[in-house]
Design a protein around this nucleic acid. Structure first.
Ligand SMILES: [Mg+2]
Length: 279
DNA sequence: GCGACAG
DNA sequence: ATCTTGTCGC
């Protein structure tokens, strides 16, 4: 789909604060969603050592519950996570993913807050401005604000912060979701829409898709590592057959920087002996 | 200075 | 977000 505005905020904190305050004024708090049918859920997960980002957007037709389309993107995380500036980390990934989407959804659900934000400009607001589509923030925990305890009788409670009603806390079964306006929806619509969503939601699908990408990548890396190990063992075996001691074989292998890099750490005579005696 | 802090 | 196994409960 078409990205209306490719909005990236400055990395420097002081400028980012001003930028958020300025763009918060552009957020539309009135409802523009009518009879939504195509709902997009978006999420990002990260590699074990934070070197890779796995981003997914899944579109669900809520009239049937069927998945209509899925788009994914894998790349380097643009920024570390910083509370209040989550968009630095996820907006670039999500925009790359929405770009690939053929479908134009009626409503977008973002895994993060909208108006529930110190400057009323959480990730969902940011993405809403970029996409110019009705957008709702759905977070799993609270960034700012307070609310009365949820109970069976009152599974929904308003979230307030500095005198503003900026969202609602909602419990469906076991899980609590914090719902807030992202863009072009009002809180009343967002509340009812999310409350009535059948599970698995588009966000659930997106989250699962990210986990699959993560697992797939992890599996590939394991295979690569195994292939490398086979190569290393073959080399070690060759050296040993030339009459070198295990200590000398280890010393020799350590001279090859590429071999050491693919193994990850230094070779020890003990390790070499274990490998060769196993095979 | 301390604690809180979406993912 | 990731690191992680079994275990308690319906
Ligand atoms: Mg997420």
């Amino acid at each position: 789909m078409e990205i209306k505005e490719y909005l990236l905020m400055p990395e420097e904190t002081e400028q980012a604060i001003l930028w958020q305050e300025q763009h918060a004024q552009k957020v539309i708090h009135e409802n523009h969603a009518q009879n939504p049918r195509l709902v997009a859920g978006a999420d990002v997960s990260y590699g074990k050592h934070g070197e890779k980002a796995f981003s997914s957007v899944v579109v669900v037709d809520i009239s049937s519950g069927e998945v209509v389309e899925k788009a994914t993107w894998v790349g380097k995380p643009p920024h570390n996570y910083k509370p209040g500036f989550f968009a630095l980390r996820e907006v670039p990934c999500l925009l790359k993913t929405f770009e690939k989407l053929q479908t134009t959804p009626d409503v977008v659900l973002i895994d993060g807050n909208g108006l529930i934000h110190k400057r009323r400009f959480g990730l969902a607001c940011h993405m809403g401005l970029c996409l110019d589509i009705p957008t709702i923030g759905c977070a799993k925990s609270l960034l700012v604000g307070n609310h009365k305890p949820l109970s069976k009788k009152a599974p929904i409670a308003p979230v307030s912060h500095m005198g503003d009603e900026i969202g609602i806390a909602m419990r469906k079964n076991r899980e609590v979701t914090y719902v807030s306006v992202g863009h072009k929806v009002d809180l009343e619509f967002a509340k009812n829409f999310v409350f009535d969503l059948p599970v698995p939601t588009a966000i659930d699908h997106a989250h699962n898709s990210c986990s699959e990408l993560f697992k797939k990548d992890q599996q590939l890396q394991e295979n690569e590592k195994d292939k490398n190990k086979v190569q290393i063992i073959a080399t070690a075996k060759d050296l040993k057959s030339q009459g070198l001691s295990y200590a000398d074989v280890a010393k020799e292998l350590n001279n090859y920087k590429d071999l050491r890099a693919m193994y990850g750490k230094k070779f020890t005579p003990r390790k070499i002996r274990n490998w060769l005696e196993q095979k």
